[in-house]
């Protein structure tokens, strides 16, 4: 099990993490991510893709 962490000052609500990981990342009413839980083993590849795809490099998988 691992966890997604957000660099909040870096995040600008592009929402790509939610597109790639809808089960783990919801968006609030302003489009900022809400990480709802741990990243399951089966979702790890998608989580890594979300980390790479973030245009602000504001995600980490720990």
């Amino acid at each position: 099990m691992s966890r997604l962490r957000v660099d909040w000052p870096a995040c600008r609500a592009h929402g790509i993490c939610h597109e790639l990981l809808p089960d783990v990342v919801r968006l609030d009413e302003w489009g900022y991510p809400i990480v709802t839980g741990e990243v399951e083993e089966a979702d790890r590849a998608d989580a890594r893709a979300a980390v790479k795809a973030c245009p602000r490099l504001a995600l980490r998988l720990e």
């Binding site: 909040w8 000052p9 995040c11 600008r12 609500a13 609030d28 009413e29 302003w30 489009g31 900022y32």
Partner: peptide
């Protein structure tokens, strides 16, 4: 004024 959830929330 740096973090979106704080700036908006």
């Amino acid at each position: 004024g740096r973090c979106g959830p704080c700036v908006n929330g």
